[in-house]
């Protein structure tokens, strides 16, 4: 009832691989985590633009959509749909609309957490 076992396997394998590649970039190059996230999100937009994102997502499910590549893929999809509907204006409106769920969730939960919690000292 809750999906095929193979879906979980592919999500795990592909998602893990995506993270492993990022880890290699962090450890072996001088790329900072912030730059890697930018690279990943832009890569997602690119994959969406050339039409590779959807097939990949069909195959690996959350293994592709949960990493930041998915954020970029969503943006590309939103832009494509918005351009089809409203023309050039869609280039501006589509991206953030498609990514609005995650962004708004991060902002709202971030605010709530900031209200409720306190930052703690780090102990290595």
């Amino acid at each position: 009832m809750l999906g095929a076992p193979l879906d979980y396997l592919f999500a795990f394998l592909v998602g893990g691989l995506v993270c492993l590649l990022a880890q290699l970039l962090i450890d072996l190059t001088k790329l900072t985590p912030a730059r890697i996230l930018v690279v990943y999100v832009v890569l997602g937009v690119f994959l969406g633009a050339v039409g590779l994102f959807e097939p990949l997502a069909d195959f690996a499910g959350c293994g592709i959509t949960v990493p930041l590549i998915g954020f970029g893929g969503n943006v590309a999809r939103g832009v494509r749909e918005a351009v089809s509907e409203t023309g050039l204006l869609g280039a501006l409106t589509g991206g953030l609309s498609a990514a609005s769920g995650g962004t708004a969730a991060a902002l709202c939960f971030g605010y709530l957490v900031a209200l409720v919690c306190h930052s703690k000292p780090k102990h290595p």
Binding site: I26, P33, S119, K120, P121, K122
Partner: peptide, 18 residues
């Protein structure tokens, strides 16, 4: 102070990084 220095020079205290 570790926490004051992290905040001023590096990243937020609860930021998860290596």
């Amino acid at each position: 102070h570790n926490a004051a220095a992290e905040r001023q020079f590096r990243l937020p205290l609860e930021y998860g990084g290596q």
